[in-house]
Lab assay of single mutants.
Amino acid sequence: GLEHMADEEKLPPGWEKRMSRSSGRVYYFNHITNASQWERPSG
């Protein structure tokens, strides 16, 4: 619920959580730099 939404908002600017269609794993994508990574971004 609300706790999940608050957790999402802690991601650094530009980052969003996405799911890989090929593997079904969650990864993180930065739409500003077009960077993507499996680890949760910090800072």
Rank of each mutant, 00 (worst) to 15 (best):
Gly1Ser: 12
Gly1Asp: 11
Gly1Phe: 11
Gly1Lys: 12
Leu2Thr: 10
Leu2Asp: 13
Leu2Phe: 13
Leu2Cys: 06
Leu2Met: 13
Leu2Asn: 14
Leu2Val: 12
Glu3Gly: 12
Glu3Ile: 11
Glu3Trp: 05
Glu3Lys: 07
Glu3Ser: 12
Glu3Phe: 05
Glu3Thr: 13
His4Pro: 13
His4Val: 12
His4Arg: 03
His4Leu: 11
His4Met: 14
His4Gly: 12
Met5Glu: 13
Met5Asp: 14
Met5Arg: 06
Met5Cys: 14
Met5Trp: 13
Met5Ser: 11
Met5Ala: 11
Met5Tyr: 10
Met5Asn: 11
Met5Gly: 10
Ala6Met: 10
Ala6His: 11
Ala6Phe: 12
Ala6Ser: 13
Ala6Asn: 11
Ala6Thr: 12
Asp7Gly: 11
Asp7Tyr: 09
Asp7Lys: 07
Asp7Arg: 04
Asp7Thr: 12
Asp7Glu: 12
Asp7Trp: 10
Asp7Leu: 10
Asp7His: 09
Asp7Ser: 10
Glu8Ser: 10
Glu8Asp: 14
Glu9Cys: 14
Glu9Gln: 09
Glu9Lys: 07
Glu9Met: 07
Glu9Arg: 06
Lys10Cys: 14
Lys10His: 10
Lys10Trp: 14
Lys10Val: 11
Lys10Asn: 13
Lys10Ala: 15
Pro12Arg: 01
Pro12His: 01
Pro12Asn: 00
Pro12Phe: 01
Pro12Ala: 03
Pro12Thr: 01
Pro13Arg: 07
Pro13Ala: 09
Pro13Ser: 06
Pro13Phe: 12
Pro13Leu: 08
Pro13Gln: 07
Gly14Ala: 04
Gly14Gln: 04
Gly14Ile: 01
Gly14Phe: 07
Gly14Trp: 05
Trp15Thr: 01
Trp15Leu: 00
Trp15Gly: 00
Trp15Ser: 01
Trp15Pro: 00
Trp15Tyr: 03
Trp15Ala: 00
Glu16Lys: 04
Glu16Pro: 00
Glu16Ile: 07
Glu16Met: 04
Glu16His: 06
Glu16Val: 09
Glu16Leu: 04
Glu16Thr: 07
Glu16Ser: 06
Lys17Gly: 02
Lys17Glu: 07
Lys17Arg: 10
Lys17His: 03
Arg18Tyr: 06
Arg18Thr: 03
Arg18Leu: 06
Arg18Ile: 05
Arg18Ala: 03
Arg18Glu: 03
Arg18Met: 05
Met19Phe: 15
Met19Lys: 14
Met19Ile: 15
Met19Cys: 14
Met19Gln: 12
Met19Leu: 14
Arg21Met: 15
Arg21Cys: 15
Arg21Ala: 15
Arg21Ile: 15
Arg21Leu: 15
Arg21Glu: 15
Arg21Ser: 15
Ser22His: 15
Ser22Pro: 15
Ser23Asp: 09
Ser23Val: 04
Ser23Gln: 10
Ser23Met: 05
Ser23Cys: 06
Ser23His: 11
Gly24Asp: 05
Gly24Ala: 06
Gly24Asn: 09
Gly24Tyr: 05
Gly24Ser: 06
Gly24Met: 06
Gly24Trp: 04
Gly24Pro: 03
Gly24Gln: 07
Gly24Thr: 05
Arg25His: 06
Arg25Val: 06
Arg25Glu: 04
Arg25Ala: 06
Arg25Asn: 05
Arg25Met: 06
Arg25Tyr: 05
Val26Tyr: 13
Val26Asp: 04
Val26Phe: 14
Val26Glu: 09
Val26Asn: 04
Val26Ala: 07
Val26His: 08
Tyr27Lys: 00
Tyr27Arg: 01
Tyr27Ser: 02
Tyr27Val: 02
Tyr27His: 02
Tyr27Gly: 01
Tyr27Asn: 00
Tyr27Phe: 12
Tyr28Ile: 00
Tyr28Trp: 05
Tyr28Leu: 00
Tyr28Gly: 00
Tyr28Asn: 00
Tyr28Ala: 00
Tyr28Arg: 00
Tyr28His: 00
Phe29Asp: 00
Phe29Gly: 01
Phe29Glu: 01
Phe29Gln: 01
Asn30Thr: 00
Asn30Tyr: 03
Asn30Phe: 03
Asn30Gln: 02
Asn30Met: 02
His31Trp: 14
His31Met: 09
His31Gly: 05
His31Gln: 08
His31Arg: 11
His31Ala: 12
His31Val: 15
His31Lys: 11
His31Ser: 10
Ile32Gln: 08
Ile32Lys: 08
Ile32Met: 09
Ile32His: 09
Ile32Val: 09
Ile32Pro: 02
Thr33Arg: 03
Thr33Ile: 04
Thr33Lys: 03
Thr33Phe: 06
Thr33Ser: 06
Thr33Gln: 03
Asn34Ala: 07
Asn34Tyr: 11
Asn34Pro: 00
Asn34Ile: 05
Ala35Gln: 14
Ala35Gly: 05
Ala35Asp: 06
Ala35Pro: 01
Ala35Met: 13
Ala35Tyr: 10
Ala35Trp: 13
Ala35Leu: 13
Ala35Lys: 15
Ser36His: 09
Ser36Phe: 14
Ser36Gly: 04
Ser36Trp: 15
Ser36Lys: 12
Ser36Val: 15
Gln37Phe: 03
Gln37Val: 05
Gln37Asn: 03
Gln37Leu: 04
Gln37His: 03
Gln37Ser: 07
Gln37Asp: 02
Trp38Phe: 08
Trp38Gln: 04
Trp38Val: 05
Trp38Asp: 05
Trp38Glu: 05
Trp38Tyr: 09
Trp38Pro: 05
Trp38Ala: 05
Glu39Arg: 07
Glu39Gly: 07
Glu39Val: 07
Glu39Asp: 09
Glu39Phe: 08
Glu39Thr: 09
Glu39Gln: 10
Glu39Lys: 08
Arg40Leu: 06
Arg40Ser: 05
Arg40Lys: 10
Pro41Gly: 02
Pro41Tyr: 01
Pro41Glu: 01
Pro41Asn: 00
Pro41Thr: 00
Pro41Cys: 03
Pro41Gln: 00
Ser42Glu: 09
Ser42Gln: 10
Ser42Asn: 12
Gly43Thr: 11
Gly43Met: 14
Gly43Ile: 13
Gly43Asp: 12
Gly43Asn: 12
